[in-house]
């Protein structure tokens, strides 16, 4: 175990930036209803609830000015009943109803029949700064689907596990330009004026 010297403690600032700016893959919409469907309602005895209530830490904090103002407001409220009375709009209630609706949505059956797939884009001179794969398997969103550049092979690579099925995809280059996979001959018009590569994932002798 070596003692770290001062120089080693200095890291390029870009390092921290990269960590701070690191993007998350987007969570799918079915996650929430899937979770809620898996929850069983709790049954707590009155005694349990009482115990927990007693164990909860309670913090009280106030500034003197606010204390005085609170007292003043209370006094005025007592003196006159014409203060604005508003029920706390429970945003929770709205959210709850939306969530209940979501809970009614059928959770898709998730079988683990995934197949490892590797996407490759050759780039001899490393002309591109970043490449991502976007397609029907990730709602055409690049978060979490960036390719890494393999300097030995001079290609951009991304490995994924995909469920069996048919997918369309393109490469998103430098965050703004899309190209179909040059190595894939099966393409489909995208109706936007360009083409998508088509990928069949699964047992080759079985139809999808």
């Amino acid at each position: 175990m070596h003692t770290p010297d001062k120089r080693e403690r200095e890291y390029p600032a870009g390092l921290y930036e990269a960590i701070r700016g690191y993007e998350d893959a987007k969570a799918p919409a079915e996650l929430l209803p899937g979770i809620l469907n898996g929850l069983k309602p709790r049954r707590l005895s009155l005694w349990q609830r009482l115990l927990r209530l007693m164990r909860e830490p309670v913090t009280v904090s106030f500034t003197p000015a606010r204390g005085i103002a609170t007292v003043a407001v209370l006094a005025v409220a007592l003196m006159s009943l014409q203060l604005v009375w508003y029920g706390a709009e429970a945003p929770v209630a709205e959210r709850t109803s939306v969530l209940l609706a979501e809970r009614a949505v059928a959770v898709p059956d998730a079988a683990h029949g995934t197949v490892p797939v590797r996407f490759v884009l050759a780039d001899e001179l490393r002309r591109n700064h970043s490449v991502a794969v976007i397609g029907s398997f990730n709602q055409w969103q690049d978060g979490g689907y960036s390719m890494r550049y393999d300097t030995a092979a001079k290609v951009w690579v991304l490995d994924l596990m995909l469920p069996r099925g048919e997918y369309e995809y393109v490469f998103l280059v430098d965050g703004r330009m899309t190209i179909p996979d040059p190595g894939i001959s099966l393409v489909r018009e995208d109706n936007f004026g360009s083409r998508n590569s088509v990928l069949y994932v699964g047992d080759e002798t079985r139809e999808i």
């Binding site: 998350d24 893959a25 987007k26 969570a27 799918p28 996650l31 929430l32 979770i35 809620l36 929850l39 309602p41 709790r42 049954r43 707590l44 609830r49 927990r52 929770v92 959210r95 709850t96 969530l99 209940l100 979490g144």
Partner: peptide
């Protein structure tokens, strides 16, 4: 813990993105 299952969804909403990622 008081029995309101739907309240858990608020936690899910807040943290599902990070956890999933």
């Amino acid at each position: 813990l008081d029995g309101n299952v739907d309240a858990f969804s608020l936690l899910v909403l807040r943290y599902q993105q990070r956890a999933y990622a």
